[in-house]
């Protein structure tokens, strides 16, 4: 029976849990559009978490980071992906290898592994409670599950982007005062990934007339 964390820590944990729950929601979202919107929402929550730490811990750099990540991850990236989706005329992913319930159970088992793995690390943090670090690990692992279990380009791109959200939460926990340059470099990494995935989506859709990656396993010259 552990004592409850302080009200602030508890609330911050709940926000971090929200990031994890949106990750699970992406896993089950049948529409590609709703997946992109969920990603935008998740990024918004991560941004809110950054602003929260900036206010409470007086880390000025985080304000700048929050603004950049808001513009990039909430507005720009989802907007770009939605525009790319608008060109392709597929709405439903329909690409799940497994049923929704079994996907959720697998992701649950994987995130349990993440929770216990981080729990055994005994990391202590001043900025955010350690629970948030475990949640971040779970977010990253569930993003991997999303990439593995859903065979369409959009889910895989969104899975990769949301993986970056998990990393953001983790870096907020471990090193809230990370130099701004490093954080912004992460974000620009993301931008490169968006360009790459955008090109893949385009090319793949043009060639295969579908967003599903199931046809990619044929070795043709």
């Amino acid at each position: 029976m552990a004592a409850a964390p302080s009200t602030y820590a508890g609330a911050a944990d709940v926000v971090a849990v929200l990031v994890l729950l949106t990750e699970f929601a992406m896993l089950r979202a049948p529409l590609l559009r709703s997946q992109v919107r969920l990603y935008a929402f998740q990024s918004l929550v991560v941004t809110a978490l950054a602003v929260d730490i900036a206010v409470v811990r007086h880390v000025g750099d985080l304000y700048a980071l929050a603004i950049v990540s808001f513009v990039l991850k909430v507005v720009l990236v989802p907007g770009l992906v939605l525009r790319l989706l608008g060109d392709a005329d597929t709405d439903l992913a329909g690409s799940s290898v497994l049923g929704v319930a079994s996907m959720i159970l697998i992701a649950l088992a994987v995130s349990a592994f993440g929770f216990f793995a981080v729990g055994s690390l005994q990391v202590h943090s001043a900025a955010l409670p350690t629970t948030a670090l475990a949640i971040a690990a779970a977010v990253i692992l569930v993003a991997f599950v999303l990439i593995i279990l859903r065979a369409d380009v959009v889910s895989q791109a969104i899975g990769f982007f949301s993986l970056e959200n998990g990393v953001s939460v983790a870096s907020l926990v471990v090193a809230a005062g990370l130099p701004l340059v490093v954080e912004v470099a992460f974000l620009f990494d993301l931008l490169v990934a968006v360009v790459v995935f955008g090109v893949i989506m385009r090319v793949h859709h043009d060639r295969a007339k579908t967003l599903s990656t199931k046809k990619l396993d044929r070795l043709k010259g």
């Binding site: 552990a2 004592a3 409850a4 964390p5 508890g10 944990d13 849990v17 995130s111 349990a112 929770f115 216990f116 981080v118 729990g119 409670p129 350690t130 629970t131 475990a134 949640i135 779970a138």
Partner: peptide
């Protein structure tokens, strides 16, 4: 339950 075990959330 998991969150509880990870840091007593």
């Amino acid at each position: 339950v998991l969150v509880y075990y990870a840091g007593g959330g």
